[in-house]
Write a protein that binds this DNA or RNA. Structure first.
Length: 106
DNA sequence: TACGTGACCCAGA
DNA sequence: ATCTGGGCCACGT
């Protein structure tokens, strides 16, 4: 049995549309474990460089907490800005506007 | 086998 | 408004 959690986080993250972002808690909640938001970040950390736009996943405050784990600290912000997202001081300005809620979709 | 760690979130003071 | 503490599940050593 494969790690459901890992796969779920993977799927949801890959389903994030361009120019949109989401939070770890949202993904965790979508999976069914709102309390386990920490594992979402852990899962992404395992898959940072795979084909998963982990850079579109930020914390509840819209802060790029995980940028430290990317290849380069600027990578995450650069990618998000490239998507059209406004970031300042490692924080998304129009976070609410760019927020996207993950859903289960086969 | 057991303990520690982690890209977080919520509730209380 | 800010600060502190607790909880959660899975993985690594």
């Amino acid at each position: 049995m494969e790690s459901n959690f890992f796969e779920k986080v993977f799927e949801l993250t890959k389903q994030i549309p361009v120019g949109k972002v989401t939070s770890y808690g949202a993904i965790a909640k979508a999976i069914g474990s709102p309390k386990s938001a920490r594992m979402v970040g852990w899962a992404l950390n395992k898959s940072t460089i795979h084909n998963v736009p982990a850079h579109r996943v930020v914390n509840r405050n819209g802060l790029l907490t995980g940028k430290n784990h990317f290849a380069n600290m600027n990578t995450m912000q650069e990618l998000l800005e490239n998507e059209g997202i406004i970031i300042q001081k490692n924080k998304i300005i129009n976070f609410k506007e760019c927020f996207w809620q993950p859903k289960f979709k086969t």
